[in-house]
Design a protein around this nucleic acid. Structure first.
Lengths: 201, 201
DNA sequence: CCCGTTCGTGAACCACCGTTAACATCCCGG
DNA sequence: CCGGGATGTTAACGGTGGTTCACGAACGGG
């Protein structure tokens, strides 16, 4: 009871502190790398001292784990939902997937950065779980790409998917210099051109 | 004299130990991140103890600095050389640039990984110098892209360049699963398609 | 043959950082 | 009004890891 009540209480009246911490930590982790960021830094970013964090997270690693798990879940969930809502046309599915990934990357450049930089700083089981989710998300892309390129094998389409991710996830390197609308349109056009490139073995 | 002799001696008869260390360190840094790798790890990877490294490098940071500086220099140098040797045709220039970047990324996935993950772990002046080199390399691309897309402004072409880098530098995520030739061809085709995508503001 | 340089080792030093413990404060429900 | 849980604070502990030091061995040239 205490457990459920606590959780409810925390999640209902307090989307605050815990989320604040996660968000601030994501920002700091993206800027300097999780290992270079101290617990005190994260605390300071939300106006508390370092050890206060342990009232909300079991450990620094648990913070990172929850962060990465959430990202992977959001991507997988959003990706499958978009594809499901896109009808049967493979190109339409591809375009929604691209739009989804572009939006996510533009909305959360910090999460994108942390997502593929600090996976290695995770405990083995957490890392494995994140990788499972990532793999499933990649498979969503591979399925769609497989319908766009019926003659390519899965390995090729996996490489294609990773290449498109790399393209879209370049936002942390080029963000802010261009108005968001233009960046989104540019990335979407480039991603579609890359994903549908035809003169390939 | 001592200095010159030492340097000559070291570089002539000994492309060995120092280079070994840099290479092993690059590998380890790419796998776990520079901050997660101890000097003992690097030493062990080349068959010596940790402190032995200080016979070859002033500090762990100096190692990383030299590593990143070399990468940036090789990219800038190679890129400018290729463009210069490619004649006046913008598309030919773009294709050599792409081929160059693809080859580099496939030959040195570890360096690619470290290059944009551990820049933040560098002393301010070293980081600034690396960034200067990076920027000049990007400008090489921006110039070429500017001739391919005469109606786009420089900011757009910078975003384009970063997107292409992201695409090509996805090799660490998808390497090994496909034969190198096929990966190279695929990435080159995708990169060219992305770089020349036309339906853009 | 011996001196100095190079390269390496093992031990010790020291700073940093994640984590825990002990103690305050605030606030809400009975 | 009062007791307990949630939330913080400061101080301290302990491990890790970069760096330095004092010393040894190989080795090439005068």
């Amino acid at each position: 009871m205490t457990d459920a009540n606590t959780a409810l209480h925390a999640d209902a009246t307090r989307p605050s502190r815990r989320e604040q911490i996660l968000q601030a930590a994501a920002q700091l982790f993206a800027e300097r790398g999780s290992r270079a960021v101290g617990v005190d830094d994260v605390g300071a970013a939300v106006g508390v001292t370092g050890p206060a964090i342990y009232r909300h997270f079991a450990s620094k690693d648990a913070m990172l784990a929850e962060m990465l798990l959430r990202i992977s879940e959001r991507l997988l969930e959003g990706g499958t939902a978009r594809v499901a809502a896109a009808g049967d046309d493979p190109m339409a599915q591809l375009r929604t997937l691209i739009a989804f990934q572009v939006d996510f990357a533009l909305d959360n450049p910090a999460l994108i950065t942390v997502h593929d930089r600090d996976l290695g700083s995770l405990a083995d089981d957490d890392a494995a779980q994140v990788r499972r989710l990532q793999r499933r998300y990649v498979e969503v892309w591979v399925d769609v790409l497989g319908r766009v390129h019926p003659t390519s094998d899965a390995a090729t389409n996996r490489a294609r998917a990773h290449a498109v991710f790399g393209l879209v996830n370049s936002t942390p390197h080029s963000a802010g210099r261009l108005p968001r609308r233009r960046t989104a349109a540019l990335l979407a056009a480039m991603a579609e051109a890359a994903a549908t490139a035809w003169n390939v073995p």
